[in-house]
Design a protein around this nucleic acid. Structure first.
Lengths: 231, 231
DNA sequence: AAAATTCTGTCATAAAAATGTCATAAAAAT
DNA sequence: ATTTTTATGACATTTTTATGACAGAATTTT
């Protein structure tokens, strides 16, 4: 399940930049422009991780982090601090105040996503996409690689996503529209039948590597990924 | 089929957070920021479950729940209450006012999804595609597979739907028109007698897998699926 | 920046599977 | 024995899926 991540950042354009990047990386961003609003949100729903700007209007990030740590229902939420100051001292203060990681502005969104994954892996491994192995096929989301036995399989971007989706949900049947939604992203105006073509491409790739019949057609329904007998 | 779930929550970020999490869990979220709009949505289409914030602007959640309970067309919709107040008293009032479950803020979206599934399983099992097992026959809607003992049975789309319908309603007699309605969908202009043919096809499939006499003819009435003796 | 390569989505056509109807046989009821 | 209802096999048609080709987009290499 996708992790819900609260971003607390007073600079709206940065907030949005982060949110969009997180969304593209498969997270659910929640936005707060200040500590008060963040508080309000947290009182209603508990995020899986918080990205916290060091400098906030009103209450600064450190203070906010301390408050979170002192409340039993928020104590365990991992925090990643963002700061403009790069000196070591602040870093130490930040980490002491309870942050799990610390990122200096300007940072690359890629780096942030990597840090988030690292923290989540440590704190809530169930929220992270671990490597999956089914029937000699080994898919590793973090390296974006698929192996059959030891050999790396060459596979296109869409086919990778498709395979990843299937391997995360083996044996279940999905309609073309469901697949479009999950693999292409919802508001895609792509034709149903395009799925067929990519299924074909994925099948070709797998067949060339000795994996027949993993992707199965369920007539009138959609497709299924399964190492079990067809039908 | 994906359950339609109406979320009534005045805090927009939270509403959206819940909606996204429900969507990712395969539900169909309907959004309402207040009781009035919720009313409007309910009049257009009855949801399968309602998530209701205790505190709403204008009319509070309890009141709204009571209203739903007093109207015959909405009486049976399961309700899950969200509340900021954690004391027992409110919980009791909430449950007495007709809520089926109760979640205290701050809640984790994952917990909410789990509760929804639990309530649906209790109140509208037909919305949850659980596997059905009757007399060695095992039908799993999510994988779209039918097994007899461990062996997968090859079965066509219409026969699958027919079998699914029968297994969901064992031991009851259905007229051909009733079956047409439920399996083919209502506005079908298909001949009554076509049902006979598909019954035959289903019987063939089952017989080939050692299941005699599960589909029984009730002369002048229609058909019945039962593991008990005929007549 | 240009060229080369890879990737995408769509379409047309082929191939496969499923469907509904009908005629006739079989069974049950009267 | 006759009538009514159901079972069954055949089959033409329709529906659904597979596949190859292609042009434009996107990405990588040069």
């Amino acid at each position: 399940m996708a992790a819900n991540i609260l971003i607390v950042e007073d600079e709206e354009s940065i907030l949005e930049l982060i949110a969009i990047n997180l969304h593209q990386s498969g997270f659910n961003p929640m936005r707060a422009l200040n500590a008060e609003y963040a508080d309000k949100l947290i009182q209603e729903a508990i995020p899986d991780l918080i990205i916290l700007d060091w400098m906030l209007p009103g209450m600064n990030g450190i203070e906010f982090a301390k408050r979170l740590r002192s409340n039993s229902s928020t104590k365990k939420i991992p925090i990643i601090m963002l700061t403009a100051k790069s000196d070591e001292e602040n870093k130490i203060v930040g980490l002491e105040s309870g942050a799990d990681d610390y990122l200096t502005k300007p940072f690359s969104p890629r780096e942030l996503v990597a840090r988030i994954k690292a923290v989540l892996r440590r704190k809530s491994p169930e929220l992270i996409d671990d490597p999956i192995k089914i029937s000699n096929l080994h898919l590793d989301p973090s390296t974006h690689r698929v192996e059959s036995n030891g050999a790396t399989i060459k596979i296109g971007p869409t086919e990778f996503k498709l395979l990843h989706f299937f391997m995360k949900n083996p044996d279940r049947v999905f309609s073309r529209n469901h697949i479009l939604d999950k693999v292409w992203g919802n508001q895609s105006e792509i034709d149903d039948r395009t799925v067929d073509v990519h299924i074909k491409r994925l099948r070709d790739v797998l067949t060339n590597n000795g994996h027949d019949k993993l992707v199965q057609t369920v007539r009138g329904m959609g497709y299924r990924f399964s190492e079990n007998q067809e039908n």
